[in-house]
Design a binder for these strands. Structure first.
Lengths: 151, 151
DNA sequence: CAGTATCCTTGCTGATACTG
DNA sequence: CAGTATCAGCAAGGATACTG
């Protein structure tokens, strides 16, 4: 998935959540894989698009603007494999396939919304900081913090 | 970053969550930009690594296993530009540079932890589903849901 | 220590064409 | 409608070498 070197075997999950904590810094830790998963910009968009209920392939394609057929299929397959999305085929012609969030998939909506909420609260600050920073660079001004050695 | 065309002005956030809903499919919607940011897998890892206080460059490099020098620098620069991280240079030799989470950066920890919590709660399910799915594929068994046309 | 600059490979991604 | 297969382009990411 991430293309990085993997040990190649089944991993012992107890290794990482000793004391109930995961270690995302460990390349082999599953929590790291979550990050890889939401790293795909389509994954999050598709999950969000399914928040209100089942959607057909073509609906998703329209809904998630800019996604290619290939990427949508690929994303849906990965989500299905992870048990976040259920695929239902209707035996009829023309074909009809519905995609639905599983319970696990639905549960992901909550933390995702937490992120979206943060965005709504702080994105202005981020955008402002970005603009300020870019201005400063144009001036060649060095506005970095320099602390005394202190010793 | 995403390289896409931007309108360049300050955006009115009310535009996107009319009725409490976001439109991450809109290029200009803040939620889309957040997605771009956490899309880099290093960004999240670095922010998390700074949760417990200031860290030096070399500490981060060790802490965030697998990150290259180039990627760490790049990530840190982006975070600084966005006002999530503050860079402090100590005028001494050998050089010492500290990175600290700003208030905005710190506030991001909460939703991030929400994601990590989700991961710790559901990663087992995801991993199990994945294994099950892969097994089924090896068997060539079709365990996909086929619904009746239903009339 | 803390970067910067450069090269080069990897693989993601989208466009296109074809199938059931 | 809902995919699968194949190909070409580009950019992210890593390794390496060098600097202040």
């Amino acid at each position: 998935m991430s293309g990085g070197p993997r040990r190649g075997g089944v991993v012992n999950q107890d290794r990482w959540h000793a004391g109930g904590r995961w270690d995302p810094y460990d390349q082999d830790c599953p929590s790291r894989q979550l990050l890889d998963r939401i790293g795909d910009r389509w994954t999050v968009l598709v999950v969000l698009a399914l928040a209100d209920g089942p959607r057909r392939f073509s609906e998703l394609r329209r809904s998630v603007g800019g996604v290619s057929q290939k990427m949508l299929t690929q994303t849906l397959r990965a989500l299905e494999r992870d048990g976040l999305v259920r695929r239902t085929v209707f035996a009829q012609v023309p074909p009809r396939v519905d995609y639905t969030l599983t319970d696990t998939g639905t549960s992901l909506l909550e933390p995702l919304r937490g992120l979206l909420d943060w965005s709504s609260a702080h994105m202005d600050d981020v955008l402002a900081s970005r603009a300020r920073h870019d201005e400063g660079e144009a001036d060649g001004a060095a506005h970095e913090r320099v602390a005394a050695s202190g010793g």
